[in-house]
């Protein structure tokens, strides 16, 4: 496949960036999107030019590191995949492909296509944990009976890999799907009950501080989420937040 790539280039966080055009030839339709970018970078290095910086790590769809807004969609035109799982067969020979970083005030660009998703980490630090003693006296997990449907729901929420596609695709750049998943994964389980009320209040507060937008229930996040996190969890977070707000003494 021969393609024309239009890629966002930005020297560093402070510089202004712009779209630049790169033609690329002989790309296998069986290669992944990131492998295609590897080929481009090899070519650039051979030509003595600066390669394109992009995020990647596991390349098997579980780490949440690869991002990219490809042809107007987070993680490209395929559904339920991260960018490393996107294959070039989704495109046609001769296509022009726009490749941009995830855009949000809370995800500042570090270089080219790499963004700082530290805002997600700070939301996690605000409440995405349980306080248990791990000094070796940990209770056997099976000693706490958990209904199967609850365990399943908690697992569904916990499959969120924190990639940020929800933020990137949301017209408001809202992080509600991510925060909802992280609030919900604990709220279904007995271990999560101790900090349940404080957790949702603190995580939402941190989310707002980071400068994410407000949710207007367009549902775009659910469609673009590589792990299929449901809007159900946002509704659950809204309930949790409302309930916790009413009884809060803060």
């Amino acid at each position: 496949m021969d393609l024309t790539l239009k890629i966002w280039r930005q020297k560093d966080a402070k510089s202004e960036g712009k779209m630049e055009t790169y033609p690329i030839k002989n790309i296998s339709e069986h290669s992944s999107f990131l492998e295609m970018l590897d080929v481009l970078n090899e070519n650039l290095v051979n030509e003595g030019k600066e390669p394109v910086a992009f995020d990647h790590d596991c390349r098997e769809g579980i780490c949440g590191m690869c991002s990219l807004y490809i042809n107007g969609e987070a993680h490209g035109p395929d559904r339920g995949v991260t960018t490393c799982q996107l294959h070039m067969r989704m495109f046609k020979d001769g296509d022009t492909i726009y490749i941009e970083p995830f855009r949000s005030k809370a995800f500042p660009v570090i270089k080219d296509l790499v963004v700082d998703r530290g805002s997600f980490d700070r939301i996690q630090h605000a409440g995405g944990f349980i306080s248990v003693n791990t000094s070796g006296n940990t209770q056997d997990a099976n000693a706490l009976p958990i209904p199967k449907p609850d365990a399943d729901k908690a697992m569904d929420a916990a499959t969120c890999i924190g990639c940020g596609a929800c933020v990137a695709t949301c017209k408001n750049s809202s992080a509600m799907l991510f925060v909802a998943a992280k609030v919900s994964q604990y709220s279904y389980l007995p271990q999560g009950q101790v900090e349940r009320k404080e957790r949702v209040l603190n995580m939402v507060e941190q989310m707002d501080k980071e400068g994410f937008g407000n949710c207007t229930n367009t549902g775009a996040c659910e469609v673009e989420c590589p792990k299929g996190i449901s809007l159900e969890f946002i509704a659950r977070m809204n309930r949790e937040y409302f309930g916790a707000s009413i009884v809060s003494e803060k």
Partner: peptide, 9 residues
């Protein structure tokens, strides 16, 4: 305001 730089595509 939450997305100061818009997408080109």
């Amino acid at each position: 305001k939450a997305r100061p730089v818009k997408y080109a595509m």
